[in-house]
Amino acid sequence: MLHTFVSYVEDRPGVLTRVASLFRRLNINIISLTVGRSEREGLSRMTIVAEASSEAGHRIRASLFKLENVVDVDDIAQAPAVTRELALIKVAATPQNRAQIFDLVEVFRARIVDLTTESLMIEMTGVESKIEGLIEILREDESRILEICRSGKMTMRRGHHVSSVLKAMGKGAEEAAEEAEESVSESETA
């Protein structure tokens, strides 16, 4: 099954390797990985999507927590969440067919972010299937797509989900441990 992990990690050299290496060791292919700054200073947020057996989720999460630079791990599993992906698509466009592409972009609620005499760039945010849909339509004309750049999935749980581990980081260690436990039970019961 498809697993989605959201992980907060220290923003310093080598941390990405440690996380990626864990999946490599378990011979699990990472399908998508996005990393960027988070709401907490010094911490990056990762969304990791990987294909593994349904029982593997527990072990991956437990193993991620064993990495010293990993502060929090959430196994999204089937919990209600919002997942988005960003795609930049450069397509060949001449004055003759531009209008047609503009219409497509309108239908898919995407945006044109660059326009030159031979090409234009489409920016689109959405769920994977929507992006795939646009790409499929654009591919109807074989020579049209010049480049595709996709961000990979970004996932966030719906509703109130405070990452209490992070909040507690500024507090005493005992509190942090307590709250970490709470956060674990939260994510498991949710």
């Binding site: 999460r61 437990a62 927590f65 064993k66 929090d72 260690a173 441990a177 970490a180 436990e181 674990v184």
Partner: peptide, 10 residues
């Protein structure tokens, strides 16, 4: 900073 036990100890 003081050692943080593995959060999944239960």
């Amino acid at each position: 900073r003081s050692y943080r036990p593995h959060p999944m100890l239960r």
